[in-house]
Design a protein around this nucleic acid. Sequence first.
DNA 1: GCATTATTTTGAACATCGTTCACCGAAAGG
DNA 2: CCTTTCGGTGAACGATGTTCAAAATAATGC
Lengths: 204, 204
Amino acid sequence: MKTAERRENLKERLIAAAEKTIAANGLSALRARALAHRVGCAVGAIYNVVADLDELILFVNSRTIAALERAVTAANRGQQAPEDAEQAIARLVQLSIVYTDFAATNTQRWRALFEHRLPEGRPLPDWYSQEQMRLFSFVEAPLKVLQPRASPARIALVARSLVSAVHGVVTLGLEEKLYTLPLTSLREQVTFVVSAIGRGLAVP
Amino acid sequence: MKTAERRENLKERLIAAAEKTIAANGLSALRARALAHRVGCAVGAIYNVVADLDELILFVNSRTIAALERAVTAANRGQQAPEDAEQAIARLVQLSIVYTDFAATNTQRWRALFEHRLPEGRPLPDWYSQEQMRLFSFVEAPLKVLQPRASPARIALVARSLVSAVHGVVTLGLEEKLYTLPLTSLREQVTFVVSAIGRGLAVP
DNA sequence: GCATTATTTTGAACATCGTTCACCGAAAGG
DNA sequence: CCTTTCGGTGAACGATGTTCAAAATAATGC
């Protein structure tokens, strides 16, 4: 099985090269010919290893999600589970700060997660959706403390709202076409939004 | 000056045609040759009237912003200015619901506002930025009631945070790759987020 | 070890995209 | 009526992602 090994190696180098150009110049700078040149293979060889450039981007995004997950788990390591509302809100704030910092330090890779859209009618692969889901679970745990009697479906919904509210604030803050926000005040804004929502959830 | 008139007419028809295809099939379905065919002119004629397709998209987006502004002003018409925190929060919630409904009923045109990115190094035209600003002022007025002693810069910052938090929630809700959210529960989520943030702002 | 077959890599060719520019036709001026 | 000017035209240009006949390489049989 020499060829399988060789292909796996090529795939690895392609993903790495794609990640590098995305991190350097953004998703829109990804070009098939440039990739082939960087990796030292023919343009056609890309399609022996990967169905599309879209699929290649999916693999890159998968690594970004993994990196974000590592950042989140590293921040959570050694911390005990929240037991009351105050601790739960603090945990949510901490998570959102980790997200903010990750987006601020890996802006281009993080942007690629959302800029990339699959052609219409083509669903996201299962493994990709599941990776996204796993990230939500970090948010859902503290939310269960805040709303112990909420159904799992409701918890999932609120988690998505919270995540995308934070995501919106971070997106704005890192948008350079408006005046660029310093990271510290971006953190403040995120902290405020998350704790306000958290208190709102804790009340009823 | 017949030619100026003729060109203005062509520009108008081009914008209308572009708006139609975007509304029907999304921003990525916009094609120069198809546009020329629909309008009944040569491909090159487009560039007599418009610098780019990018500029054309900007004009379409400008109309979308105008439509959104009409929706907001229509909702505000005949309502008195908020005087206490409760009324201010209610006004913020109302604004966010208008935004939500607009995005839900004009999804593709609304998406084009955010999907479209100018090529790097090319700044947004002034008139476009100012149109965006004018929308923020609707949010800033109730915020001033909530935080009377905040500086204008602070108000502007909070307004952007609030807007983008709402935007994030709406974006998620209209993303069809996750299970599509019914509009009523999307409204609930937005209401919850905005009122929570509003209460958080009213406290100190 | 060589001949033959099967498989894998290759890069020129294809379709399509936005954009340009040498041309042509029609008005304007003498 | 000829000349001049100028705006619309669409073929041509340079990219793009993707494919596929052919070359190159590996595997197999004897």
